[in-house]
Design a binder for these strands. Sequence first.
DNA 1: GTGGGTTCTTGTCATTTGGCAAGTGTCGCG
DNA 2: CGCGACACTTGCCAAATGACAAGAACCCAC
Lengths: 187, 187
Amino acid sequence: MNRLLPQMVVTDDRIMCMLEAMDEVHLTKGELVLKQGRVSNYYLLLDGYMRGYTHDENGAEVTTNFFAGPRAVLDATSFFGRQPSRENIVTLTDCRGYLLTLDVLNKLFHEMPEFREFGRAILVRELVIAQEQKLAHINLSAEDRYRQLVERDAGLMQHAQLRHIASFMGVTDTSLSRIRRELANKK
Amino acid sequence: MNRLLPQMVVTDDRIMCMLEAMDEVHLTKGELVLKQGRVSNYYLLLDGYMRGYTHDENGAEVTTNFFAGPRAVLDATSFFGRQPSRENIVTLTDCRGYLLTLDVLNKLFHEMPEFREFGRAILVRELVIAQEQKLAHINLSAEDRYRQLVERDAGLMQHAQLRHIASFMGVTDTSLSRIRRELANKK
DNA sequence: GTGGGTTCTTGTCATTTGGCAAGTGTCGCG
DNA sequence: CGCGACACTTGCCAAATGACAAGAACCCAC
């Protein structure tokens, strides 16, 4: 379990066994994991990169998330609320992970008390990620946000397009281009 | 329960009874609910307003959250991870709610299966709030963020200071002042 | 009242960012 | 090879925001 989800609180052999007994789901680069209008699944991503995006009121695409395994990939509102999602999620690389439905998840919660804490820890981690990213927008400049992004996940830079990174950062691709030039000059 | 937490998924008489059997905790304006360095509690806020804040690397205060009842008030990392919090939370008005410890919460989870879904729904709601606020920073101008803030909770404006709202929005108080002037002129 | 502290606004100027258009580079396809 | 599509960069100017300092408004204790 530590190997799979290093930052998780729970390390339990039974959970590890249970997961490893499940069938791994493999996805190839470019696959649409979640389509706008459908109800989200719960994908326990082990390896690979994904990108989540929506559209703003002008119809322009907005990247809302990057996912790097190991991490839970889902639209929480859609998955738990059984509502159509407003997000799209697409793979940036080949991916490997486990696919969970709400039924399976609830069954696991019911049959395996230790799994409940595991599920809660995952939700808490998603919450922490969202809050950290929100904070980055509040008190970091675009340049600092970019630096932080690169430093925390250099691998992402190899798989995501700059315009998507720019849109995720909340700046135009023009601005990001300038920021990258400044950074290159400084070194 | 609908009365208490209108946006919650779960509406269950047993939970309602259980909550109403608990002692209400009353706080007065200006009280520090969570102090940096301590482990967070879980405050189920029914009525009132609160503000969460930290400090950036320069020591400047940054407002990270506004809470309007009914809502769960906690630092999730600190509460579930039993770690010292980096946040401070202070009441902006007199407040009314229930105070839960992790022990009590876990006991409720164990004894009352329907409470588990209730707890999960609260976590999901916090996640949705954080993601929405992050999205607002990505694709809304400062002026639009301010408009949205006013429209979604006019009451907040009566209790929070403008400089705190500015810091929450990620702009200087100078900028917010100008934005408010523009908006006033437009009408 | 008066004084002092705090909050908010305003002015001036520098910096950052956006919008737009043009230019460069890369890639795949016929 | 040449073409077009796409991603990225760059230049130019306008708009938004920040930094700093001064002033106005408000509150509150004495």
